[in-house]
Computed example of a mutant assay.
Amino acid sequence: MSARQNTLSRPPAGAFYGASPGRKRLRVNRAVLFTLVPALTFFCAFWLLPFARLVVMGTEPDNHSGASAYWTVLTHPRYLGSLFSTLWLSLAVAGLAVALASVCGFFLARNQFPGKTWLLSILTFPLAFPGVVVGFLVIMLGGRQGALAQLSQSLFGERWMFAYSLTGLFVGYLYFSIPRVVMTVMAACEKLDRSLEEAARSLGASHWRVICDVIIPAIRPALLSTGAICFATSMGAFGTAFTLGTRMNILPLSIYGEFTNYANFAMAAALSVILGLVTWLALALARRLAGDVVGAPA
C-alpha cells in the first residue's frame, strides 16, 4: 500500500477527540449549567438573599427586651405559646385530615357510582378558595350570626359560637386540607396491586388485617407526604386566621403584629425564620420516611 493510500484511509486526528464520551459529557454538563442559570438567579434573588437577610436580622436586639430576637422567642412565654399553639394546631389538622380523607379517598378509588365526577368536583372545590373566603365560611357557620348560633338560640335560648377561636381556625384549616389528602390518597390507591390483598385473604387474613398489613403500608408514602403538606400549610396560613380575628396567639398573626403594629422587625424576622425551619424540617422528615418506604425491598 502506497503512502498516499495509507494517508487517505487514516481518520482525521481530531475525530477520536470529537467522539470521546468525556468530551460529550462535558458539552452536556455545560448545556445543563447554562439552562440552570436563570433558575439559580431567580432562587438567589428571590429566596436565598431575602432569607439570609431575615436570619441576620433575627440576631438583632428585640425592641422590648433588648436581647437577641431568637433568644427572646425561646425565653418569652408569649412567643413560646404562639409557637406551641401553632404546632399543636397544625399537627391536629394534619392528623385528622389524613384520618378522615384517607377513608374517603380509598372508597372513591375503589367504587364507581353515578355522580362520582360531580362529587369529586365538589370535594376539590375548596382548593379554589382563598383563606379570606374560608374564614368567612367559618364565620357563617359558627359566628355570632352563623347557622349554629341561630339554631342554638332557637333551641336553648343562647348563642353557641366557635368561629373566633382556635376551634374555628381548626375547622377552617381542616376545610381546605381534606381535599388535598383525598386526591393524593385516591391516586395512591389506584396504583395498589390488588393481588397482594387477594393473597392475604387467601392466607386467612381478616378484613382489618388486610387494611393494616397491606393497604396502609402500601399507601404510607402518600399519607406521610400529604400529611406534611397539610402541616406546612396550616403552619403558615394567614388569610383564614386574619379573617377570624387578630387576637389568636399563633405564629402568622404574631409575625404580622410585630411587623405592622410595633415595627419590631427583628422579632418578626426571628419568628419567620423559626416558622420556616419548623416547616422545612417537617417536609424533610416526611420525605425521608416516605423515601425509605418506597425504596425498601419487598
Rank of each mutant, 00 (worst) to 15 (best):
M183Y: 00
G168P: 05
L148S: 02
P77E: 10
Q112T: 13
F106R: 11
L74C: 12
Q150C: 02
L169M: 05
L120K: 03
F162G: 00
F106M: 15
F129G: 02
F162A: 00
G172Y: 00
L174E: 01
V93A: 02
S102M: 13
Q112I: 04
L83W: 09
G81M: 05
S177N: 04
Y79L: 07
W118Y: 07
R144N: 10
G157C: 10
L74H: 03
Y79R: 10
F129H: 08
L91M: 09
E190T: 09
L119T: 10
F107K: 10
A147T: 14
D193F: 08
D193Q: 07
F129K: 04
G146S: 11
L91K: 00
V133F: 12
D193I: 01
L96I: 14
L89N: 04
Q150D: 07
G168E: 10
F176E: 03
R110L: 14
G135W: 02
F162E: 01
I139S: 05
G146D: 07
V133P: 07
L108Q: 00
L137I: 02
V181R: 11
S152K: 09
L119Q: 03
V73Q: 03
A188K: 01
C189K: 05
H76L: 06
Q153D: 13
N111I: 14
L148T: 02
A99R: 02
E158P: 03
V103M: 14
L119Y: 05
L119E: 06
G157Y: 11
F170N: 08
G81S: 13
G135H: 06
V182H: 00
G135E: 14
T75G: 00
